[in-house]
Amino acid sequence: MFWQIDLAILTLVVVTAVGSLMVKDLLGAAILFGAYSFLMCLLWSIMGAVDVAFTEASVGAGVSSVFFVAAVFRTSRRTKD
């Protein structure tokens, strides 16, 4: 585990987490959450947890994003915070 790659991806994870909570559009929040899940998958493959990594890539980044986008299209994109 190279600590430079680890630290860079951890910083990106925190940035996407804060971004998906701060953005004023729920569809943008859903897409940023998908990017967060994909970076998390990258972090797990660095740590050597390959089974967790591909489960996260299919379930976390794939199915969760689809759920969020479907829910946002059935409701509204508007948010106050």
Binding site: L26, A29, F33
Partner: peptide, 11 residues
């Protein structure tokens, strides 16, 4: 602290 329900679920 977030007011929107979808933001709470993301959290």
């Amino acid at each position: 602290a977030k007011n929107n329900l979808v933001k709470k679920i993301v959290g």
